[in-house]
């Protein structure tokens, strides 16, 4: 089991629960959509799995590691196995596309010759080969989204979390990004996509978890 959530609750203040009593199991290599209206708790759920938020109560296990008991150093190493695409991209504005994508490999101490090869390959795959030397502010929203995806997948992660990965894209690009995510999944990565787009969920044939007011409703 790749992800296990047991009665997980998260609240930001006593009258502000974000997610309530969530129980969820996701197998290795699964592709799961988390959906629901705005404020349903989709992003909070991803943040808990990514351990950028701690549950108020309950337990979350990722790749067998209990996130309530994880140490600082272990967390860093776990995050290297999780690729994440943030809703606001979280790219470094003072580093060009190449260096933004190379970051995850630099952290892992990968040799520069290998970094160069892998980054070129990934950027070409995502149609960003000509934008390597551009800085994030010089790119469109869709291009920034693809850079964020490139950064998330460059390490061949065990899990890929994507928060509204097609939110800024036109229908053609949306299909392309979804194809990339499916391809990653086919290579064995567990993929979780949070989206409010009902269009995206049509005929996917994948598992869909629906949240509403912080609870799983379907």
């Amino acid at each position: 089991m790749m992800i296990q959530l047991f009665n997980v609750c998260k609240s930001f203040g006593p009258k502000n629960p974000a997610i309530v009593d969530i129980g969820l199991k996701i197998e290795k290599g699964e592709f799961v959509f988390i959906t629901g209206p705005s404020g349903a708790g989709k992003s909070t759920l991803l943040k808990i799995i990514f351990c950028s938020e701690k549950p108020t109560s309950g337990n979350a296990l990722v790749n067998g590691i209990n996130l309530n008991r994880i140490r600082e150093r272990e967390l860093a190493f776990l995050r290297r196995k999780i690729g994440i695409v943030f809703q606001d991209f979280k790219l470094l504005p003072n580093r060009n596309v190449f260096n933004n994508v190379a970051l995850c490999l630099e952290i892992a101490g990968v040799q520069y010759s290998i970094i160069r090869k892998k980054v070129h390959q990934t950027l070409r795959h995502l149609g960003l080969a000509k934008k390597e030397r551009y800085y994030p502010p010089q790119l469109s929203g869709g291009e920034q989204q693809r850079v964020a995806i490139a950064r998330a997948i460059i390490n061949n992660p065990l899990i890929l979390l994507a928060d509204e990965p097609t939110g800024n894209l036109d229908p053609d690009l949306t299909m392309e990004i979804m194809a990339v995510l499916r391809e990653i999944n086919e290579r064995g990565t567990t993929v979780l996509v949070a989206t409010h787009s009902q269009e995206l969920l049509k005929n996917t044939g994948k598992r869909i978890v629906t949240l509403n007011k912080g609870r799983i409703v379907k």
């Binding site: 860093a76 290297r80 970051l103 952290i107």
Partner: peptide, 11 residues
Amino acid sequence: ILRLVGATNLF
């Protein structure tokens, strides 16, 4: 961002 992509504090 460095923390989120898995950098250790030492790094």
